[in-house]
Simulated scan of single mutants.
Amino acid sequence: MVQIDPSLYLHNQKERTPSPELGKDEFLKILMTQLQHQDPTNPMDDRQFISQMAEFSSLEQMMNMTKSIDTLVQSQLISPVIKYSHMLGKEVTYQAYDEETGKEAGLKTSKVVAVSQSEGWAILELENGEKIYADAALQVNDPEFEGPQSEDEQNEPNEPSE
């Protein structure tokens, strides 16, 4: 009696999950299969073959461009300069220190004129000539934004017009 190999049973087969995307490797496999199984008496039309190769080249270029854009976006997201560029023109309040003694010298406020980085840290360059780490800012104000008026200012009577 002939024995059936147990590895051929369906329940022993690995489940194959099809990929919803067609990549360049799959495209090449399809093209090579077409070439191998074409009718020798009626080969593939040259124009059709060139068209498929052009599609493959276009697909490869699009994949390379997508990869480059992804790399660019990722590098922009982690750049401290880009991350803190919104601080330009803003006023920051920070704790100042006496350079000689190292003791606190009170709070200072100055406008951010540039953002740079050093060893992966964002450095805010201020209008007063000082440089501080971005995370040393205690408060950020927009000098062009007029905040809500205080209750006294809102309740003041208007001057009568003459």
Rank of each mutant, 00 (worst) to 15 (best):
P43L: 06
P143H: 07
K29A: 10
E21M: 13
A137E: 07
E159N: 01
E144G: 12
L124F: 02
D135P: 07
N141W: 08
Q13D: 06
F56I: 03
L77P: 00
F49N: 01
Q38A: 14
L138T: 13
E100Y: 10
V92I: 09
G106F: 03
E15N: 07
G23T: 12
S161A: 09
M53S: 08
F145N: 10
R16Q: 07
I132P: 04
N128W: 05
T17L: 10
E21V: 13
S85H: 06
D25R: 06
V115H: 04
Y9N: 15
G129V: 04
K83M: 15
N64Y: 13
D98P: 12
I78R: 09
Q117R: 00
K103Q: 15
V113T: 06
K131F: 08
E127F: 02
L28Y: 02
A136K: 13
P143K: 02
E144R: 07
G89P: 00
E60H: 12
A114Y: 03
G106Y: 00
V2S: 12
I4W: 08
E91A: 14
N141D: 15
V73R: 06
P18G: 01
G120Y: 04
G23S: 03
S58R: 12
K83L: 13
T41G: 15
M63V: 00
T33C: 07
L10Y: 01
Q52L: 10
L88G: 09
L77C: 01
Q149C: 05
S85P: 07
E130F: 07
Q76S: 13
L8W: 04
G89R: 03
P6W: 06
D25Q: 02
D25Y: 08
E60G: 10
E144N: 13
K103Y: 06
A96Q: 11
H86V: 11
N155M: 12
Q149D: 12
G89V: 00
E125T: 02
V115I: 15
L28H: 00
L107I: 01
F27L: 09
F27Q: 08
K67C: 07
S75Q: 08
D5W: 08
E151Y: 14
S161W: 01
S7Q: 09
S85Y: 02
T41S: 15
F27G: 03
S51V: 00
Q117I: 04
S75K: 00
A54H: 05
I50L: 14
L126Q: 04
P157L: 06
M32C: 00
E15T: 12
T109L: 01
E144P: 01
I78F: 05
Q149A: 02
